[in-house]
Each structure stands twice: as C-alpha cells, then as structure tokens.
C-alpha cells in the first residue's frame, strides 16, 4: 500500500481483503442452502443488506419464524457499529458533495473501513472518494459473486472450513490491526497497546453478559473512552 489515492490503487489495495468475503460468502450460502432458503432470497439479501454477520442472523431468525420486528432490531444492533465507523471516516470527506458522501457510506463495510484507516497513515491523513469507491465497489461485487458461486457450488462443497477459508476474515483483521498499530504515528504505540489490552479484557468480561455483537459495540465505546483518558495530553 502506498500514498496513491487513484481508482486504480483502490482496486489494488482491496485485493487482500476479498479472500475474507469469498470465505464468508460461501459459508453463508451453504448455511442458507441447508436451510432451504432460495438462491434468489440469498442473493437479494447480499445485495440489499450487504453485511456478513447480520445475514447469518437473519437466515437463522427467518428459519425460526421470528417476527419481522425482532429480526430488524437484531440487524440494527449488529450493524450499529457501522454508525461508529461511518462517523469516523466521514470526517475525511466533508469537502465532497452530499451525493458522494451517501454513495461512499452506502457500500462501507468493516473491511473497507479498516483498509481506509490503514491508508490514512500512508497518505498524510487524506482520503479521496475515487479511491474508496474503487475499494467499495470491488468488495461489493466480490461479495455478490461469492454468493452466486456459493449457490452453484453449494451442493458440491459441503464444508468450506476444511480449506481454512473461514479463517480468512480473522486473518484479515489481524493484519489490518497490526498494520494500523505500527503505521498510525498520531498515537504512541504504547497508548495503542493499552487500548488493545483494555478492549480485549472488556470483550471477555462483556461476553459473560452479552452476545459477541453487542459486547463488541460496548467494548469499542469503552475502549475509545479509555484511549482518550490515557493518551498524553
């Protein structure tokens, strides 16, 4: 990754993250297949909801026949971390038009957010819509393609985990987190390590009381407050 913010470098930068989408996309389709959800329903969900973990929850709740209101509320809770990510990244596009901002936000994911935060450290804290559009669109297309291919292969591959693909997402976040810590020069490494430690411990304690997705949101908010408190004034 370098300091270039062109459409082409956006295409290039997003490549390492697409492995994760392929793994999750395949896994989701197989879950959906075994639960007799139609290919069209799964594809529509990938295109309209476009959020991996929420889609798993939606599939399982639809199968259980949960009320629509409960499914929508769960989806909101799981994806409410999007609010935090959008708030963070939107600061860098204040000068761009509202239309651009809405287009950028519409396809923002955990992955392209994390990638952008890494990119900021290479570009002197600047981002451009063209670069993020490129990364977003590739991610969206790969996600849609993984869904379709998954539907076609669903009956052949019953266990994508066998190839370790389920770990691609975890691996990606390990890489993005590590690169974030070593390249973000706006904060001392020690401060960041303290935040990592704090959030890790908070997650363990919070998951005693809340499912992972809710714990994740609370731990992030607490972690940001903790970071503010311990950062050198």
């Amino acid at each position: 990754m370098d300091s270039s913010l062109t459409f082409k470098s956006g295409l290039k930068d997003v490549v390492p993250t697409v492995f994760g989408y392929v793994g999750v996309g395949l896994a989701m389709v197989i879950v959906a297949n075994t639960s007799h959800l139609s290919v069209l329903a799964v594809l529509l969900m990938s295109l309209i909801v476009y959020a991996g973990s929420a889609q798993f929850i939606i599939i399982s709740m639809v199968l259980a026949g949960s009320p629509v209101s409960a499914i929508v509320l769960s989806t909101f809770l799981i994806n409410s971390r999007m609010i935090l990510m959008s708030l963070s990244i939107a600061q860098y596009f204040k000068k761009d038009s509202l239309g651009q901002n809405i287009a950028l936000g519409s396809l923002l994911t955990d992955e392209t957010f994390a990638l952008s935060m890494n990119k900021l450290n290479q570009t002197g804290q600047k981002l451009r819509p063209t670069w993020l559009h490129a990364a977003n669109v590739v991610a969206y297309l790969v996600w849609a393609a993984a869904t379709v291919v998954g539907c076609l292969l669903g009956n052949l591959i019953t266990d994508p985990d066998q190839f370790g693909l389920d770990f691609a997402v975890v691996g990606m976040f390990i890489g993005l987190l590590y690169l974030q810590m070593i390249t973000d020069r706006s904060k001392p490494l020690l401060t960041q390590l303290w935040v990592v430690l704090f959030v890790a411990v908070a997650m363990y304690i919070l998951m005693r009381f809340f499912p992972g997705n809710v714990a994740l949101l609370i731990a992030t908010l607490l972690g940001c407050g903790f970071g503010m408190a311990v950062s050198p004034k």
């Binding site: 955990d110 957010f113 994390a114 390990i174 994740l216």
Partner: peptide
C-alpha cells in the same frame, strides 16, 4: 474519541 475507533473496533472484532 473517534480516533480510537479503528484500533478499538478491530481489536474487538478479533477478540470476538
């Protein structure tokens, strides 16, 4: 506050 979102959220996703 928001400047800590990247490192906090990525840690939380990893630990989850």
């Amino acid at each position: 506050f928001l400047s800590f979102v990247p490192v906090a959220i990525m840690t939380a996703i990893f630990v989850e």
